[in-house]
Simulated assay, not measured.
Amino acid sequence: MKEVNEAQIGDTLFHHKHSVEALPGFKPAKAMVFAGMYPVDQSDYTALRNALEKLTLNDSSVTLQRDSSPALGAGWRLGFLGLLHMEVFNQRLEQEHNASVIVTAPTVPYKAILSSEKIIKEYGQKEITIVNPAHFPEKHHVTHYLEPMVMGTIITPDDHIGKIMTLCQNRRAVQKNMVYIDDHRVMMKYLFPLNEIVVDFYDRLKSLSSGYASFDYEDAGYHPADLVKMDILLNGKQVEELTAVVHKEKAYVSGKALCERLRDSIPRQLFEIAVQAAIGSNIKLF
């Protein structure tokens, strides 16, 4: 082994002259949330790489893959078990290694079943996993898209049931079960699209329940979904870092919200800046 990180937890070690069968039962941790990480100053690239290598030795559940961006330069795409895991990792990076980084919005891995023979040859397989939204294939090359789902369990006092049910329905959740576990507490099970809960769902749940509701989730595989790639254009130029994969029903609302946030965030200039959201060749918002 040339590097320490080549030794994975769950590996079976044996003498090179006496091969054995690998011990069964171990499954590596599966990354559920992905985000890009880039140094604020490209001169800090080497120092940040060393810091990431040290942290990933202590936390083998973080996946690390080199990435580059026309706007942000060289960096990495990291996979985490959840949003809290990503926040803790980023905090450790700042506190223990004094690293200043730019973290892109968290995304989840999607899958696409390809239909075009030319594209299948290009990728080498019919089913592909899309980690970076910028690499999302066009609709005419795909039979259907798949998005990751999770089975979420919410335990809450019965005073807040109505507000929580409305929140879950707005996040495209499907209710599977609801039972009273005592006189005042309810346990609800919902099938959630993972991308609907990775950003602010937990905060909204706590806010609606005055902090009393609890939430847990487990992987529920991939389900077909009507997904589209939403590009953000500034003065007609695509900004790859702001590209997002959204459900078709929520494309207009998501694009409008992002454009309004950009309008408030971009400093005032002496010339007009057009902020647009586009789906394919259709410019939806200005």
Rank of each mutant, 00 (worst) to 15 (best):
D11S: 10
H15I: 00
H15C: 10
S19N: 14
S19T: 14
A22R: 11
K27C: 08
M32K: 15
M37R: 00
Y38A: 06
V40K: 15
D41G: 10
S43K: 14
Y45S: 12
T46M: 13
L48G: 07
N58V: 08
D59H: 10
S60W: 11
T63I: 03
L64Y: 09
S69I: 04
L83D: 12
L83M: 14
M86Y: 07
E87V: 07
V88M: 11
F89S: 05
R92H: 10
E94H: 13
I102P: 00
T104E: 04
T107Y: 00
S115R: 13
S116E: 10
E117L: 13
K118S: 15
I120D: 00
Y123L: 06
K126P: 09
I130Q: 03
V131F: 15
P133M: 03
F136V: 01
T143Q: 14
V150H: 06
T156Q: 06
I164W: 02
R171M: 02
R172V: 05
A173H: 04
Q175W: 04
K176S: 04
M178N: 06
M178C: 05
I181C: 08
D183G: 12
E196F: 05
I197S: 01
D200K: 10
D200G: 07
S210H: 14
S210M: 11
G211R: 00
Y212M: 08
D216Y: 13
D226F: 09
I232Y: 00
V239Q: 00
L242C: 01
A244H: 08
V246D: 01
H247G: 15
A251P: 01
K256S: 10
K256W: 09
D264E: 12
S265K: 15
S265G: 05
I273F: 00
A278I: 02
S281E: 15
K284P: 04
L285I: 14
F286P: 08
